[in-house]
């Protein structure tokens, strides 16, 4: 059992890294008091998901998804799917990264707006001010 568990960890340590990063991000989103810290936690969670997708795309013994000699006269070589890394998760995640920076901009704009309204970024102080109104 112990040996099995160890070989399981050794062959899937990347996914365990994803789980740890997701836990860090979720903890920052739940337990941190500062709004900018929460936004950083949200971004860590996003990158953890992107890392998960990119990990599923990896193939042993394959190269990057750009066809060799593709630019001068294609069709001479037979292309095997096992020679190239799966491009589909890369595509999905590439757009996700750019969308994540756009959502980051909106989140930071909201944080700046909250700071101008309440004079603080701490969640408990904002809640206290709302209660006293």
């Amino acid at each position: 059992m112990g040996v099995e568990l160890f070989s399981d960890i050794a062959s899937k340590y990347n996914y365990l890294g994803v789980v740890i990063l997701m836990m860090i991000g979720l903890y920052a989103m739940i337990a941190k008091n500062n709004l900018v810290k929460k936004i950083i936690g949200m971004n860590i969670f996003q990158t953890a998901i992107i890392l998960f997708y990119v990990s599923t795309a990896a193939k042993r013994g394959a190269t990057i998804p750009i066809i060799r000699h593709g630019h001068n006269g294609h069709g001479h070589e037979v292309i095997h799917a096992a020679e190239y890394i799966n491009p589909l998760p890369h595509v999905l995640m590439l757009t996700a990264i750019v969308v994540s920076v756009a959502t980051l901009g909106v989140a930071l704009a909201l944080a700046v707006k909250v700071y101008h309204q309440y004079g603080t970024l701490e969640e408990d102080e904002i809640r206290g001010q709302l209660r006293n109104k």
Partner: peptide, 19 residues
């Protein structure tokens, strides 16, 4: 995507072709 993209679209970078 990997096997047909170059014949169907003439783009070697598969990520761009799929994107």
């Amino acid at each position: 995507y990997i096997e047909e993209a170059i014949a169907e679209t003439a783009v070697p970078n598969l990520v761009t072709a799929v994107l």
